[in-house]
Design a protein around this nucleic acid. Structure first.
Lengths: 144, 144
DNA sequence: CCGTATCCTGTCCGATACTG
DNA sequence: CAGTATCGGACAGGATACGG
């Protein structure tokens, strides 16, 4: 029962724990999914919607629309569709008038949210350092 | 010595550990930096370059150019500048002919890489689930 | 070798208007 | 209420050419 995925995970976990080794090639399929997911999670809205859903568990379209500041109806619909497609949330339509649609986070959505929180924590913890680095960089650029 | 950042980190860590509570508002500055950083790390190249640098510690421009498949010179230059600006790597120019420029990962770059590996691990571990979810979604869409 | 400058194309996304 | 349809501006990013 050889599993290329398993070994990939092991390899990635090794990296995660700081055991970086040169020469390690990444499984192209994983690479592709990661890049694909990156393209989505960084599409400005996905993670925000995910966090909102994590907090509230279950929401209707208009509720999310109000909670996510600045999003357009179009982007909300589109993003929700992608997230449903990838199994991050479930979409339940109640055939009533007026329509009633519930969006609910899935286990996968929860675990992604958890995984992603590492980045969030990093950003929170390095906020000052990044701002400082930017100041230094700006200063160095000026003395051209 | 009250620190809004500290409390934000604590709050974020609480979320990270699964203690989600509704009503928790996120510090706008952190929110902004996170979104800003997201915009970069998911700009398709940053994390890839970061990983390459993590593996090799120090590289020259052309070396990165070869290691990162498919990137254009323009994007490589641009991305490297942003990363330098944010303090993720250092850029050292040796004033010789022909030019010699070294890019080296910083501690901040390393910790970001580590934080981000959580997402990478998630992607590796959920590759099959996502693909399955997409198949199901596609199947459901057809029976219109 | 390591860039910058310019052009040009695709596509993202907001605004707006309309439907079941 | 929860969408779909269409238009148009902005901008990301690739290809190419050139410079120190």
């Amino acid at each position: 029962m050889r599993s290329p995925i398993k070994s990939q995970i092991a390899k990635t976990k090794a990296i995660y724990e700081g055991h970086h080794q040169s020469g390690d090639e990444v499984d192209p399929r994983v690479q592709k999914l990661v890049e694909d997911l990156l393209g989505h999670i960084a599409d400005k809205w996905t993670m925000i919607i995910l966090e909102v859903l994590v907090e509230h568990k279950q929401l209707r379209f208009t509720q999310i629309y109000k909670l996510v500041d600045g999003i357009s109806q179009k982007m909300l619909t589109q993003t929700l569709r992608y997230m449903e497609r990838d199994g991050l949330l479930t979409r339940t339509v109640y055939p009533v008038v007026p329509p009633h649609v519930d969006y609910k986070i899935t286990d996968m959505g929860l675990t992604l949210s958890t995984a992603f929180c590492g980045v969030w924590v990093w950003a929170a913890g390095n906020l000052i350092k990044v701002e400082e680095a930017r100041r230094k960089f700006a200063a160095k650029s000026k003395q051209t």
